[in-house]
Design a protein around this nucleic acid. Structure first.
Lengths: 228, 228
DNA sequence: GTATATGTATATCATTGATACAGCGATACG
DNA sequence: CGTATCGCTGTATCAATGATATACATATAC
C-alpha cells in the first residue's frame, strides 16, 4: 500500500482543489472530484479540513501566498506612489492569470464575510499610503486612500474577469484616476504645473543652491518635453 | 381548491424567491423553499422557469426593474455630469438597500458571464457620457469613461456589501476621483503644482534615471516645504 | 504490551436540482 | 355535444453532493 506523510496528503488535496478551481474558474467543485484526484475518500478530506469551507479557506490562503509572491518579485524602489502603481498592475495581472483563485479571494460577495488573508496585502498597501503621506504626497487620509485604491483595483479586476476580456487601457485609466484623486493632482495640467514649478524654483535659487536649481530646471524641462 | 391565474403563480414564485434572497443575501436558496412558500410543487416551478438559473434570471430582471425605477425617480436635470453623480449615488444606495438583489445583478463573478439586463443601465450611462462628450466636457472617450465609472461604482458598492459597512466618504471620494479623471479637471482641493510635478516625475523614472528622479523629488519636496 | 493518536475506508444520511409520468381542468374544434 | 389539445400541477424518483457515524489499521508513547 502506498504511504504518504500527513502533510503530503493534505497538500495534495489542496493542489487538487486548486487545479479543479483553475480548470473551471467561478464554478463550484465537488469534494468527491478532489478526493478522486488524490485517490482518497471523503472522510480523509474531512479529517484535514473539517468542511468544504475549510478546504476553500486553505486554497484561498495559498492564493494569497501566490499573490504576495508575485508581488514580492518586484522589489520596492523606494517611491511609494511608484510602488502603488506597480502593485495595482500586479493585482490586475494576478486576477487575470488566476481567475479561479481571484474569484475566491475577492469575488465572493456575501455581507459580512471576507477572507482574513485579505488583510495581508491590505496591510502592505496601507504601508505604502502611509509612506506617501509621510512624504506629504497625499491629499487625503492614508487609510482612506488605501481603501480607495483597493475598491477600484478590485472593481477593475473583477470586471475584466467577468467580461473575460483584458482591458489594459481601462485599468491604466482607472489607476491614474485613483492616483490623481489621492494625491490631489490633476493629470491634465501637469504641463503647466511643470512650468509653474520652474518659475518657483528660479525665483528662489537660494533654497536648493544655484547649481542645484539650474540642474533641477534642466531636469524639469526634460520631463515636460519628453513625457508629453 | 384555490385557483390562481398562471401569471399570478409565476409572479408569486418570483416574489417568494426574491424574499428568500433578501432574507439571506449572498446565500444560496432552495427551490423547494420557494415552492413551499407559494404552496406549489417543483414541477410547477420548472414549468415556468425551466431551471434554477431561469428563476434567478427572472429575479435579476426584476432587480434591474427596481433599480431603474429608483433611478427614474430622480429626473435628469440636463447636466450630464450632475446626472452621473446622482446615478452613482443611486447605484450605491440600491446595492446597500438590496444586497441580495445586487449580488445577483453585479456580484456573480464567473468568466464570460454577466446578466443581459446589465445592458439597460449601462446603455443609460453611456448616454450620459456621450452627452457630456458632446458638451466638450470629457477628456477621454465616452465609452471608456462609462466603463470607468461602472467598474469603480461596482467596486465601491460590492466592497461595502462585503464589509457590511456603509462608507459614504469613501464612495464620494472615489466618485469625485472618477469624475475628475474623465473630465480631466483637478479635484476640489488642488494641491500645489509641485505635487503634480512630483507625481509626474515619479511616474516616469526612466526619463531622468532612478537616482536622478529620487534626487529631483527630494529637491521638489524641500522646495515645497520651505517655500510655503 | 497495552494505549492513545493519526489517518483512512465502508456505509449511510439529508438536501437539492432536475425529470418522467400521469392526471385534471379549460378551451378549441368538428 | 363530444372529443382533443394544451396549460398547469402533483406523485414519485434520480443522481449528485456535503456531511457523518462507525470501524479498522498503523504507529508512536508509556
Amino acid at each position: 500500500m502506498i504511504e504518504h506523510s500527513p502533510a503530503d496528503t493534505r497538500t495534495r488535496l489542496i493542489d487538487a482543489a486548486a487545479d479543479l478551481i483553475a480548470a473551471a474558474p467561478g464554478e463550484d467543485f465537488s469534494l468527491r472530484a478532489v478526493c478522486d484526484a488524490v485517490g482518497v475518500k471523503l472522510p480523509t478530506l474531512y479529517h484535514f479540513f473539517g468542511s468544504k469551507q475549510g478546504l476553500i479557506d486553505a486554497v484561498v490562503e495559498r492564493g494569497f501566498d501566490m499573490y504576495l509572491e508575485a508581488k514580492g518579485a518586484q522589489e520596492p524602489n523606494g517611491d511609494p506612489i511608484h510602488d502603488i502603481r506597480a502593485g495595482w498592475d500586479a493585482h490586475v495581472a494576478f486576477g487575470i492569470a488566476h481567475p479561479g483563485f481571484y474569484t475566491l479571494m475577492y469575488g465572493k460577495v456575501r455581507p459580512g464575510y471576507s477572507p482574513d488573508a485579505q488583510e495581508r496585502p491590505s496591510e502592505l498597501l496601507r504601508g505604502l499610503t502611509a509612506q506617501a503621506a509621510a512624504q506629504g504626497r497625499l491629499a487625503v487620509d492614508p487609510v482612506q486612500a488605501a481603501a480607495h485604491i483597493l475598491v477600484a483595483n478590485i472593481g477593475v479586476t473583477l470586471r475584466q474577469i467577468i467580461l473575460a476580456e483584458r482591458d489594459d487601457a481601462l485599468s491604466a485609466a482607472v489607476r491614474e484616476g485613483v492616483i490623481s484623486a489621492i494625491t490631489g493632482t490633476a493629470p491634465a495640467e501637469t504641463r503647466s504645473a511643470v512650468n509653474a514649478v520652474i518659475e518657483l524654483a528660479s525665483s528662489h535659487p537660494e533654497t536648493l543652491g544655484v547649481a542645484e536649481t539650474a540642474l533641477l530646471i534642466g531636469w524639469l524641462q526634460r520631463l515636460r518635453d519628453e513625457e508629453r
